[in-house]
Nucleic acid binder design. Structure first.
Lengths: 222, 222
DNA sequence: CCATCAAGTAACTGTTTGGTTACTGGCCGG
DNA sequence: CCGGCCAGTAACCAAACAGTTACTTGATGG
């Protein structure tokens, strides 16, 4: 997100000169810095000064673009949800056989969680506060119905052809997949400590990936 | 913990009179208040003044008994781990058939999590900080080997009688049980919000309890 | 019965924090 | 070519914070 970014031509006029004033770039930098700061320290631990410094700007701009710390946090959270749901939508789990579709969703979810620990961390923070900010969000409520609808279709198709049990419930299936991925990754530090095994090791990660697919399918297979 | 607690007779001398100075009671009150404060607000959000007030004492005592905020937090965390592992040990999952033993462990874990959300919250906080404080703890490392040993025995017995698959791994089984319980409870607020279904409702909780047992057994049954 | 020491209180301190104010400088329309 | 506007800066502020100091109270053993 940083580093390789070419200087944007700044809407108003195309110019090659290094622009200090680039509102969109500044805004994006703040959002990205805030994502990291909130993910690493939680709402209570995140520091506004630290976000400004990480973004290479200062607090004035942060308050200018986002109002206050809480609104900035909500923006970060919304962006994170949009990120996973957007990627998920491009899967088209209905294009294959029901079993392959479910396996694909499980793999995608696991790998997305693994690649975006900051998303899991934000979820953790938000739940600590009982979804205080998420509940205020208007944008996000409908973002999720798509997932359940698509999953319902895949499961129904599998039930008709007799590969899935009738009791298979779409929400339960998704929660099962998400549970197994979320817990392993977000709790890896305490788990590795108390069980004396490094869960982040490649071999263990691969084994758990296979385990998730196995468990998910085993729980709904006829 | 409060309210119904009879006045302790204060070691040194039995007396019915209401004692203001009762070191053990004060210590316990601080620990209990700190547990709630840390669970509700995380390490970064917890306030030392709030803990003192909740405990009905003041900061001086808190620093007197526990050193500083971080050490107090570590005490709280250790206490929480000792709590679940102690209760778990009394299960004796080896006393029944292997299948019943695993089901029993799954039920126990789910119900313990449900009854002690503050434990889940503390785990979340500790993992946010990558087990920074837990790693310092000497007491806790061996507390967990017992669980794995007992679980290994139960699984081996099931493998011999042919009810479990050979690939069944004790750590994986425990992680599966814990994942399904942890995620559902600790993420109930965001999940209920985005899916528009109240996961804390009795019917849903009971269904998930059955689901956990079903999934766990389905994943290891021959 | 009083000297001693631990339990307990409250007011204080230096620092950090979220948020603000007063200011600078570049750009664009008229 | 200039007046107003908007991106950006830095110094500032009051409140909140973790941790401390100076003090009071009460039980107990010699």
């Amino acid at each position: 997100m940083d580093g390789s970014g070419e200087k944007k031509p700044a809407k108003r006029r195309s110019q090659e000169r290094v622009l200090q004033r680039d509102p969109e770039r500044t805004r994006a930098a703040i959002l990205e810095a805030a994502t990291r700061e909130f993910a690493e320290n939680g709402m209570g631990g995140a520091r506004v000064d630290a976000i400004a410094e990480r973004a290479g700007t200062n607090k004035r701009m942060l308050y200018h673009y986002f109002g206050d710390k809480e609104q900035l946090y909500l923006h970060v959270l919304e962006e994170a949800y949009v990120g996973i749901r957007t990627a998920e939508r491009e899967l088209h789990i209905g294009d294959r056989s029901p079993e392959e579709g479910i396996a694909e969703l499980a793999l995608f979810t696991w790998r997305y969680f693994l690649k975006h620990p900051e998303f899991l961390s934000l979820l953790g923070t938000e739940n600590l506060h009982r979804a205080r900010w998420l509940r205020q969000s208007v944008r996000l409520k409908e973002l999720h119905s798509h997932l359940i609808v698509e999953l319902t279709e895949v499961l129904d198709r599998g039930k008709k052809t007799g590969v899935f049990i009738d009791a298979a419930d779409p929400l339960n299936v998704y929660l099962t997949i998400a549970s197994l991925g979320y817990f392993y990754i977000s709790n890896q530090y305490t788990l590795s400590t108390i069980f004396g095994r490094d869960l982040a090791e490649k071999g263990n990660l691969d084994a758990w990936e296979r385990h998730i697919v196995h468990v998910t399918l085993a729980s709904i297979k006829a």
